[in-house]
Simulated scan of single mutants.
Amino acid sequence: MGAGSLADIWLMRHGAYDGHRAGYHAPPDAALTREGDEQVHRSLPLPADITAIVTSPVMRARQTASVIAHLTGLPVVATSGLLAEWRAPSIVLGRTPDTYPPAYRAWREHRLTNPTLRCEDGESLTDLHTRAQRCASFLHHTAQEHGPLLAISHKLLLGILSRLAEGPTSFASAARDTWPFAERRRFTAPSE
C-alpha cells in the first residue's frame, strides 16, 4: 500500500478488563468486560485514514481489535508480541500492592537505579525499552506496507513507546500516565 510514516500510526489502549484495579497485574487471559466493550464502541469513529489494525496477543487487546475490526471492516494485519504488556513476574500476577511478595517489593525499590535488574521471570526495564524500540520499528515498517495503522496495546508499553527518547527509566512516568481505556493517541516518535 502507501508509504506510511510514524505520523500515520495511532496507538490505542484496550478496553476495560475483568479484575482491573490500581496496581493490579492482570493475567494475560483477563477478558474485556461489558464496560470495556462499550468503551471500544464509543471510541469510534476512527481517524478516516486508518487502513489496518495491529494488536497485542493479550486477550483484552485482541478482543478490542476484534470489536473494532467487526464494526469498521478494517483488517487485523498482525498480532505481535512486541505490542504485549510489560511482562510482570508471575509472582505478582493477579495480586494487588498490599499482597506483593518481598522479592517484588525489593525489585521495585531498585529498578530505576538498575534498569537491567529483573524480578524472577519478569521483564527488566531495559528489556521492555528494547522491545519498545523494536516495536516502533515494527509499526513503522507495517505502516509502510499496509498504510496508516491503529496499534492496540497496553498502558505501560504505550507509555514507553511515547517516551522512547527517555530510555529504560521512562517506565516510571509511563506508569503514572493517565491513559484511559480505549483512548487513542497519535504516535509521534521519530523514525529510525
Rank of each mutant, 00 (worst) to 15 (best):
D49S: 15
D37Q: 15
R62K: 14
R118F: 04
T126W: 12
T55G: 01
M59W: 10
T64H: 03
P97M: 06
R62D: 05
D29E: 15
A48Q: 15
K155W: 10
A31I: 07
Y17A: 13
E145L: 15
S170C: 15
P115I: 05
V76F: 03
L150W: 02
D37P: 07
L150Q: 03
A174Q: 03
E166W: 11
A3Q: 11
T178I: 12
P115T: 08
S162E: 13
G147R: 03
A189S: 14
T126P: 09
T169V: 14
I68H: 00
R108G: 13
F187I: 06
M1Q: 12
A48H: 12
G19V: 06
R176Q: 14
H14G: 02
G81V: 10
H146I: 10
G4A: 08
S90W: 07
P190K: 08
R185Y: 08
T169A: 09
I160G: 00
L125D: 03
G122D: 00
R186F: 08
T169L: 08
M59G: 11
E120F: 04
G2F: 11
L93Y: 07
M12S: 00
S137L: 14
S137I: 12
P57W: 07
R118A: 06
N114K: 13
A69M: 01
H20E: 15
L156Y: 01
F181Q: 04
E183M: 12
P102G: 06
P28I: 05
S153K: 02
R62W: 05
L157R: 01
F181G: 01
A175K: 13
R131I: 04
L164G: 03
D18T: 14
V67W: 04
S162V: 09
L93V: 13
H141L: 13
V77M: 04
P28A: 09
E85F: 02
A165N: 10
Y104G: 01
H154A: 03
A52C: 08
A136D: 01
A172E: 14
S90H: 09
L157Y: 02
E109C: 13
H110P: 08
R87A: 11
R163Y: 09
L11V: 09
S153M: 00
D127H: 14
H41V: 12
E166N: 15
E145G: 11
T64C: 04
